[in-house]
Amino acid sequence: MLGPLDPLINFILEPYFFSPFIYPGLTIGLVVLLTLIWAERKMAAKVQLRYGPLYVSKQIGGALQMIADALRFFFQEPIIPRQVDKIVFLATPALALTVTVLPFIFIPAAPSYVGVAVSYSLPLVLALGALIPVVIILMAWGANNKFTLVGGIREAFMTVGYEVALFISAFAAALYYKTLDLSVMVEKQASLGLPGIIINPIAGFVFFVAMLMASSKLPFDIVEGEQEIVAGPFTEYSGILYGLVMGASYLYLYVLMLVFVEMFLSGWLPVIHGLGSIYPALGGVMLFVKTYILLLFAVFLRGVYGRYRLDQALSLGWRRLVPLSLIAALWSFGLLIAGV
């Protein structure tokens, strides 16, 4: 018996719609964005012996604070300074967000549940992510301000610093799985019965640190460098435009974290094997839970760290992370040779 809404529900549940738009895509991405920023503020506050956001919805610990903030961003006047390149200034925030959410098309949410199934999903996701710095640099240039220019240059430097390590460490893991498809990687981990982080811990560690650098989270929030360059490339933005650029970095962290969990923490496979067979959708929940816990850890670091200096972050990238990622590649290679 078909209800009148069934075709619609069926359409929504189709992977090509559900995956990019609902989960893990836009909708859940927005939820993650709002709750993660709240959680970041709450956790930093707890470490610092404070309460954090509280008075917006006091009964639930101020969880609606971010919705209030988002509303404020919407209603705040976006000021467009006279000296900016108007088209670039207005287009880049939207462009940055677009580039950030595009990888959702290729990230599988569950076995064979992906927007567009391609066998090169890992390089596609990383390549789309690598476009973000280009947009940020464009934004910095378009805003035509001393602080944004310095911020743009820092973004360019940082990109050089982390991108190589990020790619090599990802491919080092992929080398052992002998595939570039994220779905297949999870299946490989299932067949091995081990998460990727145990198979190749160095690659996992390097990917995690490079991920923090890529999404400019502490201790690598060098691009925004408030104490020197106000807000870096985002200095001139206000209102919803600022909301967009601020949200983009969190969304990018979410994207990379999904990739990390699928590559190194056996994705949607439950911690205890065989649990997934109870109910197939549980896989998606598992993926989300793992991702969210790691996201919480990543933003918790705000309460522990200060900011590295630009050249120190770069030398960390080139002198430590790149060699380590090469070692990780050799490790994978060695494991393959040894036939483990």
């Binding site: 707890k46 309460g303 522990v304």
Partner: peptide, 8 residues
């Protein structure tokens, strides 16, 4: 990090 977690 352990100190941070302890206070968390």
């Amino acid at each position: 990090i352990a100190t941070g977690l302890r206070y968390l």
